[in-house]
C-alpha cells in the first residue's frame, strides 16, 4: 500500500501526510443478559485505511449507519478504538497519555452534524468559542478579545454576538459558531461530521464556502463526512465511499466521480440528483436496506444488494486493490482484471 509510512512517535516535519489511518477497527460490544455478557459486536468500522494530506480534504460518503461518524470520532480518540492505528502528524493518537492528548487536542477539531445539540445552551457565544482558547492559552490574555472578534468575523459572525446565547441563533449561525469554536484553536485538521446536513440548501452553500475559504486561508485538512455526494464533490480533494464499516472505494474526487468502480459507488452516484431535468438518468436502485453491522453478511458485505453479485462474493472477503494509482477498490469484480487496468482507464 502506497500510503503507508514509517510510524514514529516523534512528529515528522516535512511529511505531507497529516493523518494516517491504518486498518482501523471500531467494534461496539453488544451486551445482554443479567451478567452483561458480550454476545456480539457492532462492527461500526471494520478495517479502514486511508491517508489525509496537509491542507487536503477527504470526503467520506456512505449510507446512514455505515460508520462514517464513528470514524470521525475514533480518529479524534473520542471513542476507544478496537484495533488499528491512527497517526496524526506522526503521533500515534492512541499511544499517548491524557496530558499529551490534551495538548494535541487543539490541533484536531470536530464540527458536528447537529448545530442545536453541539452548543451548550447555558453559555454565551464568547464562552463557547473562547473556552478552549483560554484553556490551551492559544493567545495571550490581553489579545483574547481581539482574537475572538477576528475568529468570529472570519466565520461570518459579528463581534456583538458574543454575549448572546445559542438559542438566539438560527441553524446556519449556530454552525458558524461551531466552526468558530473549532477554528479558534487554530487546528491542522478538522473532522466535519455532516456539518451541513441539518441546514437548508442556501445555508449549506454558505457554510461549505466558508469551510473552503477557511481552508484556503488557514491551510487545514478536512475529513468531510457526508451522505450528500454533491457537497462532497464540491469540497473534497479525495473521496472515500463507505459501506457497512468498510471503505469500499477510495480515489481522488475526479477519478471517483468519472469512473466509479465499485457497484455500490455506481449506485450511489446514479442516485444523486442532477439539476438538469432534460438529462436522462440511468438510476441503479438498490434493493433492500443496509444489513445490520452487528451481523454483516459473509464474504463481500455488499453482496446481498449487489446487482453484479458472483458466487465468490458470498464467501470470500474482497481485498483492497489498487485499480489505478490512487484508486483503491474492494470488489471481486476487479480481481482478475488487474492486467486490464491500463486499457480500462484509457477506455473510460
Amino acid at each position: 500500500m502506497q500510503q503507508v509510512m514509517e510510524t514514529t512517535n516523534t512528529p515528522v516535519q516535512e511529511n505531507e501526510d497529516l493523518l494516517v489511518v491504518r486498518d482501523l477497527k471500531q467494534y461496539f460490544p453488544i451486551k445482554a443478559g443479567l451478567m452483561q455478557r458480550v454476545v456480539g459486536n457492532v462492527k461500526a468500522v471494520d478495517g479502514v485505511t486511508f491517508t489525509i494530506k496537509r491542507g487536503n480534504t477527504l470526503g467520506l460518503v456512505g449510507e446512514s449507519g455505515c460508520g462514517k461518524t464513528t470514524i470521525g470520532k475514533t480518529i479524534l480518540r473520542l471513542n476507544q478504538k478496537t484495533s488499528g492505528d491512527v497517526i496524526f502528524d506522526g503521533v500515534d493518537i492512541f499511544g499517548i497519555n491524557h496530558q499529551q492528548l490534551r495538548d494535541l487536542r487543539p490541533r484536531m477539531q470536530i464540527i458536528f452534524q447537529d448545530p442545536y445539540s453541539s452548543l451548550s445552551p447555558r453559555m454565551p457565544v464568547s464562552e463557547i468559542i473562547g473556552e478552549a482558547v483560554r484553556e490551551h492559552n492559544i493567545v495571550p490574555e490581553n489579545e483574547f478579545e481581539d482574537y475572538l472578534d477576528d475568529i468570529m468575523r472570519s466565520c461570518g459572525l459579528q463581534p456583538y454576538h458574543k454575549d448572546r446565547y445559542p438559542h438566539e441563533f438560527s441553524g446556519g449561525q449556530r454552525q458558524r459558531i461551531c466552526i468558530a469554536r473549532a477554528l479558534a484553536l487554530n487546528p491542522d485538521f478538522v473532522v466535519c461530521d455532516e456539518p451541513v446536513s441539518a441546514l437548508d440548501v442556501s445555508i449549506q452553500a454558505q457554510i461549505i464556502n466558508l469551510l473552503k475559504d477557511l481552508q484556503k486561508s488557514h491551510g487545514m485538512a478536512y475529513l468531510f463526512i457526508s451522505h450528500d455526494l454533491s457537497v462532497v464533490e464540491h469540497i473534497s480533494d479525495e473521496v472515500g465511499v463507505m459501506y457497512l464499516g468498510d471503505l469500499v472505494e477510495h480515489a481522488s474526487k475526479k477519478t471517483l466521480f468519472q469512473n466509479p468502480l465499485h457497484p455500490y459507488t455506481q449506485a450511489l452516484l446514479s442516485a444523486a440528483p442532477i439539476p438538469d431535468p432534460s438529462r436522462k438518468r440511468n438510476r441503479i436502485i438498490l434493493e433492500g436496506s443496509i444489513p445490520s453491522p452487528a451481523n454483516p453478511p459473509k464474504g463481500c458485505k455488499f453482496h446481498t444488494r449487489c446487482r453484479e453479485v458472483m458466487e465468490i462474493c458470498k464467501t470470500v472477503v474482497p481485498l483492497e486493490r489498487e485499480y489505478e494509482p490512487g484508486h483503491m477498490v474492494k470488489c471481486h469484480l476487479y480481481n482478475d482484471r488487474k492486467a486490464l487496468n491500463e486499457e480500462t482507464t484509457e477506455a473510460v
Partner: peptide, 26 residues
C-alpha cells in the same frame, strides 16, 4: 451523549470544568 459535551472533550476542556460548567448547569 450530547454533542456539546463531546465537543468539550474534543477541545480538551479539563474534567472539572466539564462537570461544573457544562454538566451541572444543564
Amino acid at each position: 451523549e450530547q454533542d456539546f459535551l463531546v465537543a468539550t472533550e474534543a477541545t480538551g476542556i479539563r474534567t472539572s470544568r466539564r462537570i461544573f460548567r457544562h454538566l451541572v448547569p444543564n
